[in-house]
Design a protein around this nucleic acid. Structure first.
Length: 298
DNA sequence: ACTATGTCCTGCGAGC
DNA sequence: TGCTCGCAGGACATAG
């Protein structure tokens, strides 16, 4: 469900709300396995850690964890615990002595995943697969009906591909060199660019005047310049709008975005093009719907 | 190495 | 009303 602008919105919201909070305990559901790391490993990494920050990497949400739980005054930790924590820190400073610290918690929301921060006594909704109890009395909950989402912990998560909003134009053009695949497919390939999904691929191609089936390698420098500008513009506008809410996307506070009202082609099959009134077409590419205006896009 | 296709899941709305 | 069908924001494995 969520693409770069939605994930960015969620990560910013989470950063604001849970940075500095400590994790008291972790519950991970049984039946589904929305996991890339074993449940025990995830629980061990999260247990008693502090959330130092939250950020987006492509379509992933990365929680940076620190092993310095802010101990609330009056709630003294058992000394054995404190020692274990300290040793872990020292090991990190003196290279290679201790097992690698998995100090990042990584969440991919798949199509229908949500990360919610709610009061601990809030009703647990259906398809809740993980609950992280915070010292502040709230809970971070992972809800995902379709279970395409994934949870993992890692020492250092780098992701793949280039960040569309950071990559320079020369690097951008290099991504498509020699690729015979349709440009739409190339935009969706997370090993090239990370964070672009079906909505923003279609919307940026429309704004660049390029048909989704154009072979990536055949695009001229001029084509790529328009695509580069269009992609950055559409992503930035979508972030400013809090993302697109098609059916069930909400941010960490449960609020929807509004960029769906700015969609020119995505989900508008048969409707008149906003520029030339020609009915929007839909074709299937890479097993996904591709929407475009046959008159405005060449 | 690159590219196209099927599969993993549940829920929803359209159409009958 | 109730059923079936197709479709859904993603990413991987597999086959060619």
């Amino acid at each position: 469900m969520p693409e770069l602008p939605e994930v960015e919105t969620i990560a910013r919201g989470l950063a604001k709300r849970v940075t500095g909070d400590a994790i008291e305990s972790v519950w991970i559901g049984e039946k589904p396995e929305p996991l890339k790391s074993p449940a025990k490993q995830i629980a061990a990494a999260l247990h008693q850690a502090r959330i130092a920050g939250v950020r987006r990497v492509g379509k992933h949400i990365v929680f940076d964890l620190s092993r310095q739980p802010a101990v609330p005054s009056g709630q003294q930790r058992r000394s054995r615990d404190t020692n274990r924590v300290k040793r872990g820190q020292d090991a990190r400073a003196t290279a290679g002595e201790a097992p690698a610290l998995r100090n990042q918690f990584i969440v991919h929301l798949g199509m229908t995943g949500k990360l919610l921060v709610v009061a601990a006594d809030a009703e647990v909704e259906r398809h809740t697969h993980a609950i992280v109890r915070l010292a502040s009395g709230r809970e971070l909950r992972f809800v995902d009906p379709r279970r395409f989402g994934r949870l993992a912990v890692a020492e250092r998560f780098d992701g793949t591909g280039a960040e569309p909003l950071d990559v320079g134009f020369e690097l951008f053009t290099g991504l498509f060199r020699g690729r015979r695949t349709p440009i739409k497919n190339a935009l969706l390939n997370q090993k090239l660019l990370r964070g672009v999904g079906n909505i923003y691929a279609d919307e940026s191609l429309f704004r660049a005047g390029l048909r989704p089936r154009r072979r990536a390698a055949r695009l001229t420098r001029d084509d790529l310049r328009r695509l580069y500008d269009a992609l950055q513009q559409v992503l930035n506008q979508a972030i400013a709008a809090g993302g697109s809410s098609i059916s069930d996307y909400v941010d960490s506070e449960g609020d929807p975005g509004s960029f769906q009202f700015e969609h020119r082609v995505y989900g508008r099959e048969g409707e008149p093009c906003s520029v030339c009134e020609t009915p929007i077409k839909r074709v299937v590419l890479a097993g996904r719907s591709a929407h475009y205006c046959a008159k405005c896009q060449k």
